[in-house]
Design a protein around this nucleic acid. Structure first.
Length: 484
RNA sequence: GGCCCCAUCGUCUAGUCAGGUCUAGGACAUCGGGUUUUCAUCCCGGUAACAGGGGUUCAAAUCCCCUUGGGGUCACCA
């Protein structure tokens, strides 16, 4: 049995999209599980949509997710180059062969002419298929057309027989001879279309298992036609259900950030994203839904792929992330937090591991690293930079005896040891003495030193701050009161 | 519109292929309650679904057909 070789072949238009990440993940899992090879190829045959920086972004996003490829862009391999724009001569050789054998032909229609033909034909018969010329134009005519400034494309001559492709998830799909159109395989700019380049590369690179989104299913026959014309082998085919947004429409960037990188920036853990993405179209069966990356390699089964569309549920992703954060060990959290901080500008000292570990411990229960920053940021910033939240001030300081409590507490704080234990003892003793519940003590303090009602436990908050900054901030709070 | 695909709580799904054990299970969301110095976490409990109609069968969420609904695709984009 031949070793399985899968690939992910994105076109470089920006950061990796969650849909692309899902396709990459499944191809990766299929290869890993079979002890096969996973390849990464860049399909950059559309010069108008090309974004050179996107290649590095996609690679970075994949690596962040833990999806490593064995062969392809950036890592090399025996079948390169791995970007199609560097393989143009190869596609031309195959096109030449098709042309010489009468399996392909030149066409010179302009976009406007084609639009007109389509419009007329659809009005009359409801459909449109490019009318194959009686006689195929040769090189001389192509030259002449080019000289006249007309576009010159190459179209494949479809066979006059039905074409059937066998998909492992959706079954056999047959396209009757009468519904096949002589589609374009080389564009007027000399670049191959996706159909040609994709098929040639899969053959040359030894890809024998194609797994991609269902939006490709209805045009798989085109690749089958090309493979047949070129004498290529047919790979195993597996199409994945589509990923929909919350409204049930195909997931698009309009629905908010659906780039993997956006989730990284938002403070998500890659293992949570991977786990969640794995469930988009894959049904493990039973009640289990939490899987580590290693378990995914172990448990993933192509037989358990769904045919129904999956929905991208951000709420559930958030919940997965919350759980993953709670389940992760401190070393793992530290590394992930540092990655997060490296992407943002915050006053939290990203280089101080001991401090970061303490912050992590103080922030158990966060849902994303963004929560952690929102909660602790002000503790590490300047004492005079943060604003006092008017609502917090009104509710916690002005409504009760908040200011009085602060004024009374300040000298006691100034005289105590600065440890969580000592602070706890001090505040509790004060509470007993005054007959106050901890809420009446902790909240005024919290607002005084952070400007808001949200921070880690009051003891940890004060310890992070240090005695000096705590006293400065309490003074500032009291001063702002008198200032009105 | 042609062709293709899909259909269990609001969402993802277990169960469907091998019909009975399903008064339909879980998770997320939601609602109620609890723990707690804030937020978040956590704990307990509740509401909530087999799209509709025909068959087949002793028996159907499970098999068949139709209807309805949803999605995809029909590019010199991939």
């Amino acid at each position: 049995m031949e070793t399985i070789k899968t690939r992910f072949a994105p076109s470089p238009t920006g950061h990796l999209h969650v849909g692309g990440a899902r396709t990459a993940l499944f191809n990766f899992l299929i290869a890993r599980q079979a002890g096969g090879t996973f390849l990464l190829r860049i399909e950059d045959t559309d010069r108008s949509r090309h974004d050179e920086s996107a290649i590095a972004k996609i690679c970075e996003d994949l690596r962040w997710l833990g999806i490593e490829w064995d062969e392809g862009i950036e890592v090399g391999g025996p079948n390169g180059p791995y970007r199609q724009s560097e393989r143009l001569d190869i596609y031309r050789r195959y096109l030449r062969r098709l042309l010489d054998e009468g399996r392909a032909y030149y066409a010179f229609d302009t976009a406007e002419e084609l639009d007109a033909m389509r419009e007329r034909s659809r009005a009359e018969t409801g459909g449109f298929r490019y009318p194959r010329p009686e006689r195929f134009a040769g090189e001389e005519e192509a030259e002449r057309a080019r000289a006249e400034g007309r576009p010159v494309v190459a179209r494949i001559r479809c066979p006059d027989t039905d074409v059937t492709v066998a998909d492992e998830s959706f079954g056999e799909i047959t396209i009757p001879a009468g519904e096949q159109e002589d589609f374009i395989i080389q564009k007027a700019d000399g670049y191959p279309t996706f159909y040609l380049a994709n098929v040639v590369d899969d053959e040359l690179m030894g890809v024998n298992f194609v797994c991609r989104g269902q939006e490709f299913l209805d045009q798989t026959w085109r690749q089958a036609v090309l493979r047949e014309a070129l004498g290529f082998r047919e790979p195993r085919l597996l199409h994945l259900p589509l990923i929909m947004d919350r409204h049930g429409r195909k997931l698009s960037k309009r629905d908010g950030d659906v780039d993997v990188h956006a989730f990284r920036r938002a403070g998500y853990l890659p293992e949570a994203l991977v786990n969640f993405i794995a469930l988009l179209g894959w049904r493990p069966g039973g009640d289990r839904e939490k899987f580590t990356p290693a378990e995914l390699v172990q448990e993933f089964k192509t037989e358990r792929l769904s045919k129904a569309n999956a929905r991208f549920d951000r709420e559930k992703l958030l919940s997965f992330n919350t759980d993953a954060l709670a389940a992760a060990g401190e070393d793992r959290l530290l590394a992930a937090l540092k990655d997060y901080l490296s992407l943002h500008s915050t006053p939290i000292p990203a280089g101080d591991d001991a401090l970061l570990r303490a912050v992590l411990r103080a922030c158990r229960g966060i849902r994303t690293f963004a929560d952690l920053v929102a909660k602790c940021e002000v503790l590490f910033g300047p004492d005079d930079a943060f604003q006092y939240d008017p609502q917090a001030v009104a509710k916690v300081l002005e409504k009760g005896a908040g200011y009085e409590t602060l004024a009374e507490l300040r000298p006691r704080l100034a005289a105590t040891d600065w440890t969580a234990e000592a602070l706890e003892a001090l505040l509790e003793a004060y509470g007993v003495e005054k007959g106050l519940k901890m809420g009446k003590i902790a909240q005024p303090l919290r607002v005084a030193v952070t400007g808001s009602t949200v921070s880690p436990s009051i003891y940890e908050t004060l310890v992070f701050l240090g005695k000096e900054k705590t006293l400065v901030r309490i003074s500032r709070c009291l001063a702002e009161r008198s200032a009105g």
